[in-house]
């Protein structure tokens, strides 16, 4: 599903990864953790094709993404849902329109729009469809971002510190949504520095933890 083979990445003259290789299988749930600035966000951006690897190979959904053109990148992104810590929206569009953006850009018009109400209900925002993003709280924004990320039923969901700006109760609620998605067969890769959240998740789902540190990514042990 996601395969990195000797991927290297440096940023601002500093090496973030060196020869990172890892494989994330379909339907798995992985946390990515590590200190601030270790490269969690960069690794997720590589996986969402927002950045290109400086060396090595990245395979997504069975396809080597080395050298694919911009249209192919766009098509690939429709199969990968992304939730950022500071999820951005088109502020003058309503929540419903923002959630439907992936549908609009993919050219699908009606086949999934009927699910919108159900999806907003699932993230607990059934009554927020006509509000605009600036009117939402941090937790609501993250749930809208999650709804937008999965409207096209992507195979992979990447979440970058999705609980970074919300309180513990909201963090658990977002985690519940990710766990539920995983149970529906989605591959989840969630970057977080919140070890409590990881411990809580591991008590409920079979999640693996990848630790990124000093330019290397390694599977963390049971004690994190």
């Amino acid at each position: 599903m996601i395969e990195l083979d000797k991927v290297a990445m440096s940023y601002g003259g500093r090496t973030l990864f060196q020869d990172v290789s890892l494989s994330i299988s379909p339907g798995s749930f992985h946390f990515l953790t590590g200190p601030s600035g270790a490269g969690k966000t960069t690794l997720l951006k590589l996986c969402s094709l927002e950045l290109g690897a400086q060396s090595g190979h990245l395979k997504l959904l069975g396809q080597d993404v080395q050298g694919i053109d911009r249209d192919q990148i766009a098509r690939m992104r429709r199969r990968i849902g992304v939730v950022h810590q500071d999820s951005r929206f088109v502020d003058h569009l309503s929540v419903a329109e923002n959630v439907m953006l992936p549908v609009a850009v993919s050219g699908r018009s009606t086949d999934v729009s009927g699910d919108l109400g159900e999806l907003l209900g699932w993230v607990g925002l059934a009554d927020a469809a006509e509000r605009t993003p600036p009117e939402l709280s941090g937790g609501e924004r993250q749930r809208v971002a999650l709804a937008r990320a999965i409207i096209l039923s992507p195979e992979i969901v990447l979440a970058d510190e999705p609980t970074g700006n919300v309180d513990w109760d909201m963090s658990l609620r977002l985690l519940d949504l990710l766990i539920e998605l995983n149970r529906l067969g989605k591959t989840i890769l969630c970057a977080t520095h919140d070890l409590n959240l990881i411990r809580h998740a591991k008590s409920r789902v079979s999640a693996r933890v990848l630790r990124i540190k000093d330019g290397a990514v390694a599977l963390a042990g049971a004690g994190l």
């Binding site: 911009r70 766009a74 992104r77 429709r78 929206f89 992936p102 850009v105 096209l152």
Partner: peptide
Amino acid sequence: VLRIVGARDGW
């Protein structure tokens, strides 16, 4: 935002 959700440059 449009790029994140998979919009082509042409779109």
